[in-house]
Amino acid sequence: MIRVQGLSKTFGNLKVLDDLSLTCSKGEITAIIGGSGGGKSTFLKMLVGAVKPDSGEIWVDGSPIHALEDLALNDVRRKMGVLFQQAALFKSITVAENVALPLVENTDLDESVVAIIVKMKLDQVGLSDFDQYLPSQLSSGMQRLVGLARAIALDPKIVLYDAPTAGLDPIAASAISKLIKDLNQVLGITSILVTHDIMGAVEIADHMALMYQGRILHQGSPEELLASPEPSVRQFMHGDPDGPIQFRKSREEYEKALFEEAQ
């Protein structure tokens, strides 16, 4: 369904993705976990063609995203939904209008049909009573649910989630995780989930990939990653600050950097 081969991207001097390869099977939930600033969000943007890779290939449902021009790219985008980290709802229009937007813009459906679909989608995320609210009148968890309703408005084959549970209380986070699982099971949606929420991902993912410094370090089923003897995987899965994955400089490195700077 989604195949990425040898993907690389550099912004200025910063190498964000480094020869990244990954395959996501049809109808599965693939969770990509990794530290902040590891290139996960850039990777998601590349999957929808919003950022072009320096090298490498991205194949989504048989289409080469890396090589497509705008019009052809839009055809593929209509098969995909994206839930952004901060929902990215349009603040000046109501919840119902937000969910209706992809339908109004991409289909010739009658207004009454659009209204029914919007109601159905809002029902699916449990927010049908909030259709006339403005996004600013909702909590961040509810905004993300509206974002999810908008992402599935066109009944996409693929949904990408960018840190869908980040910053939410445990109840809202588990509600969203459950919805992602339900959408996957009921509608057969292929899902790619970028997250820091290891336990949430373990619960719902069929496949997990650990990303570090722009590469996939390890991948496998959640059980495989949890049971992995690999020190870097164990460190990340158990949230240990000390280990092979360095989140800050060691004392020796810090002293060396200071000394070099002074010179």
């Binding site: 705008d70 985008r77 209509r78 980290q85 349009f90």
Partner: peptide, 18 residues
């Protein structure tokens, strides 16, 4: 900065036109 323009792009809506 709120990713709304990016959201338009991924919904296959041309931001310049819209």
């Amino acid at each position: 900065t709120d990713d709304e323009v990016l959201a338009l792009e991924v919904m296959a809506i041309e931001p310049v036109e819209y």
